[in-house]
């Protein structure tokens, strides 16, 4: 991947890539540093751990000896393009975790045209997100606590905001800076509250617990040990990931079932034998091979294929007429012996 490739990507693609590369940007912004980090991580030699993505493609590609199969895709379906915009000027706020919130917004045509004519060009509108903390005290005063502003460009329509405040309520205004009137609000978001990330300081007098005992309970719940929660959750995610994507999705096809290829050896050869027993009788006869009943095809023919390891095998094939009064047995005796020989030119 080159810097040109990255420059041709949209912001969301870059963020997606950053996510894949596990670059914790922390600001939801794409800047020079992010680009460099992505470049480093994508040009670095492939990691030794198996990447779910590469494994996933492994199963889609047919094995070289398989004939080409029809494309199994989702097939032709609806015209399912979703609207780019719902022609509303609005902003919505959502909680990601105790430290981050996510917001998306949309502009109506009226807003777009109004601002474009005011500033001459949509790209030059000084659009801004204004982040507030909502507290009871501040609401009483009629004004929420203004935390910070995030300048945005006209093509951006969502943002992850690092509020870093567990158990607090937030709200975001979408607006722009008017040359004379200052910050003008276009839309106001809903209020969300981030989750707590620690034990509540509030203790109920009727349900008192000795601090030491509570710590024990907390530790016993598997949470208090350093690192244990995330490790456990990561593992459970991996398991769930495997479960959710169903069968076949992540498959490590390492070797065929007989005679694993031995990579550590240079030149190699694997030979196996299968045996096909076939024949025909009256279509209404009953047939067994080595005592096991075998279904006949409508024309009375049959085929059985089986593995043939080294050794000598008797395979009695017995047919009994429908009336049960006649029986014919034919017994092929098959022997397989395998010899290995290896030569190597000196030098």
């Amino acid at each position: 991947m080159t810097i040109e490739d990255l420059e041709n990507m949209g912001r969301s693609e870059l963020l997606g890539l950053a996510e894949v590369q596990q670059i914790q940007d922390g600001r939801g912004t794409v800047d020079e540093q992010t680009v460099q980090t992505i470049l480093q991580s994508t040009t670095a030699p492939p990691a030794t751990e198996t990447n779910p993505k590469t494994e996933a493609t492994a199963w889609i590609e047919p094995r070289p000896e398989d004939p080409p199969h029809a494309e199994v895709t989702v097939g032709p379906g609806d015209d399912n393009e979703l609207p780019f915009s719902y022609n509303q000027t609005r902003i919505v706020l959502m909680v990601r975790d105790p430290y981050w919130v996510y917001t998306y917004w949309d502009y109506s045509t009226d807003t777009y045209q109004g601002l474009t004519s005011l500033f001459g060009n949509w790209e030059t509108v000084p659009l801004t997100l204004r982040v507030y903390e909502v507290t009871e005290a501040a609401t009483k005063d009629g004004e929420d606590k203004h935390l910070f502003d995030i300048p945005i460009d006209g093509s951006t329509r969502s943002w992850y905001i690092h509020v870093n405040g567990p158990d607090r309520a937030y709200r975001v205004d979408l607006g722009y800076f008017h040359p004379c009137e200052g910050f003008v609000i276009l839309a106001r978001s809903n209020v969300v509250k981030t989750p707590r990330d620690s034990v509540s300081p509030i203790i109920d007098g009727d349900w008192m617990v000795i601090e030491e005992d509570f710590r024990k309970l907390y530790r016993l719940a598997g949470w208090g040990r350093p690192g244990s929660n995330s490790a456990e959750l990561v593992e459970s995610l991996i398991k769930r990931l495997e479960r959710e994507i169903g069968s076949g999705a992540v498959s490590s096809i390492s070797s065929p079932s007989f005679g694993a290829r031995q990579k550590e050896r240079g030149f190699w050869l694997v030979v196996n034998c299968e045996l096909i027993v076939f024949g025909a009788t009256e279509p209404d006869a009953r047939l067994t091979i080595d005592g096991q009943p075998i279904a006949l095809r409508p024309d009375g023919s049959f085929t059985l294929r089986m593995a043939l390891p080294d050794g000598k095998f008797r395979i009695p094939v017995e047919a009994t007429s429908a009336a049960g009064d006649e029986t014919i047995t034919i017994t092929p005796v098959v022997e397989r012996q395998t010899y290995h020989h290896r030569t190597r030119e000196e030098g």
């Binding site: 989750p195 707590r196 990330d197 620690s198 034990v199 509540s200 300081p201 509030i202 203790i203 109920d204 349900w207 008192m208 617990v209 509570f214 309970l217 907390y218 016993l220 719940a221 949470w223």
Partner: peptide, 12 residues
């Protein structure tokens, strides 16, 4: 565990 008020018995 992070319920409020603090749960006396944890998750048990």
């Amino acid at each position: 565990l992070h319920a409020s008020p603090r749960p006396k018995y944890g998750v048990f």
